[in-house]
Design a protein around this nucleic acid. Sequence first.
DNA 1: ATCCGCCTCCGCCGCACGGGGGAGACGGAT
DNA 2: ATCCGTCTCCCCCGTGCGGCGGAGGCGGAT
Lengths: 220, 220
Amino acid sequence: MSGIPVRVVLADDERMVRTALRVILDAEEGIEVVGEAATGAEAVSVVRELRPDVVLMDVRMPEIDGIRATEQILATLADPPRIVVVTTFENDAYVYEALRAGAAGFLLKRAAAEELVQAVRLVACGDSLLYPAAVRTLAAEHAARRPAPAPPWAARLTGREADVLRLMAAGLTNAEIAGRLSVGPATAKTHVAAVLAKTGARDRTQAVIAAYTSGFISPA
Amino acid sequence: MSGIPVRVVLADDERMVRTALRVILDAEEGIEVVGEAATGAEAVSVVRELRPDVVLMDVRMPEIDGIRATEQILATLADPPRIVVVTTFENDAYVYEALRAGAAGFLLKRAAAEELVQAVRLVACGDSLLYPAAVRTLAAEHAARRPAPAPPWAARLTGREADVLRLMAAGLTNAEIAGRLSVGPATAKTHVAAVLAKTGARDRTQAVIAAYTSGFISPA
DNA sequence: ATCCGCCTCCGCCGCACGGGGGAGACGGAT
DNA sequence: ATCCGTCTCCCCCGTGCGGCGGAGGCGGAT
């Protein structure tokens, strides 16, 4: 490292913010702020011209917001810079939008100067991402979805009943379920009735809903 | 910062890895490796005794793996250290498990020394998380789930029909839907029929399935 | 040998459901 | 003034569905 400095472009509609960031970053060894932009459109052209290593991109900007600017930069440039999206609010929607747009990192404006510097260094040298507490939410959300809220009745279902519930959740009628399982229609009905009783569902629709909401089957 | 050094504990079953990490980290200003552990159980007791700021935890270890060790540390200690999980493989399952266990960060063993150092500094100074490319997957997964696979019929549903579909997906019968919307049963039936036609569903169950799988309503 | 859980089937019955029509009222679009 | 989409409601009809009870076979547990 530190052979050639990390070249950074700042994109923010407020001059003061840009100045503050520039002061912080220019004071650092191996980091050089090479350009600024006040709008999303300007950011795109500046980046296209200067080809920086890292872009600090504000989300809220006139003309084109940071998200779209990020999309455009990543879509139109070969070997694009790593883009760190900067925002004031820890708004989930922005985080996800930024990630979807292809941002390499995400940073809050209230982040400490150290965090800012490390963020720039980090995204510059690796394919790593930097994150504020928002990731906790993302991760927790994902984690919460994984082990499922534990369906209490799932364990009580017999193997055959589980099969039937899966087929019910696929939208099959009793007759179709019977055909698929190579059993008589009466048998299918019996299993369905058992599933309804064990899931506490009033009808097959509620049973299917329970199957989805409990994670017994995934929407995918 | 740099007032008091960041105190780090290394947990990895291979001595060579521990040594390598120690060499890298000890060379850094403001970072001090204060302890090592070769097993998950050992990691728990060492951390309990030394109270470090950061723990670099290998996932694959004898007796207790890194994930469980992380869980135990976070569950039993007040003011626990920030734990960075280190692994060789970019295995998604490990990432999610680690996050679920409460790890503050995630790092690949093939990460550059710089990344390692910055990871330690980062988790030590803020509530920030550090990430390798695996986050891309996580984020992409989340992003992919957000805008939904675009339900083509959703736009074709009228406001009332959308209401009805939501109530259908809640497990209500036609009569109940009518009551909830303060309309006659016949009207509810009409709307239901329209929903079935537009979603291409054969019966209400299939319509509800479509609502779930298309993201029209969320399992949560 | 006995019990119990699971799977397999059988009837009967009531009803909500879904298909196929038609119809009136309101509002916005042109 | 006319059309069209939406919401509202009505009829009939067939049937799949769900509730009820009963039955036989088969395997494991004790």
